[in-house]
Amino acid sequence: MNRSIFLTILTLSFLLTALTGCGPERLDDYSDVRFELTDQNGESVIFPDDFRGAPLVVGFIYTHCPDICSFITANVGKVYEELDNPGDTRFALVTFDPERDTPEVLKKYADAFDMDREPFSFLTGDPETIQAFMERVSLRSQESFSRDLDDGERVYFLNHSDKILLIDQNSRLVFDYGGSMTPINIILEDLKKL
């Protein structure tokens, strides 16, 4: 082999190794899980398989939450709006209140935030699947208090983790943010590193 070609290959190998080492560490790997969810249009979505191949920004919400979850939802929307080059990056909001957050409810919620469109997915599922999913992503929720309305309907509220995750093209968790508290530009910068 020509010596200059050998040196070029050697240099490229070093560079590739160095670049790989410079990327952010992965906090978790979801490639070994499979959760069958349903989006706001009633379509089946498999997490994480259906998102593999592109970065995913995913927040966790319930639609009876007026303050923190609307903040999380708006933040996910703002990340997309402010990305210079979103490419094939996907954005998802997953409910941890599947009994009340049906696909129809999520569709209306998404529409209110002008997010019932690509590349946003609002996801729910059967309660067992959602519970397993939330345990896997370390999302905690518990009933806090309730109100009885004049027609006897009981409305309950939840204490919950405040979380947005950034998942890479290979279904690995890159960052775990405080969902409502993290400045958008930090998520934007982290997305650029993928």
């Binding site: 007026p66 905690r140 806090s144 109100r147 004049d150 405040d162 405080g178």
Partner: peptide, 21 residues
């Protein structure tokens, strides 16, 4: 709205958000 109340969101513990009237 059917009910209107004054509320406050607060961090109950590490990363766990709550709300109180």
């Amino acid at each position: 709205a059917r009910l209107v109340e004054i509320h406050e969101s607060f961090e109950r513990e590490e990363g766990m958000m709550g709300m109180r009237e």
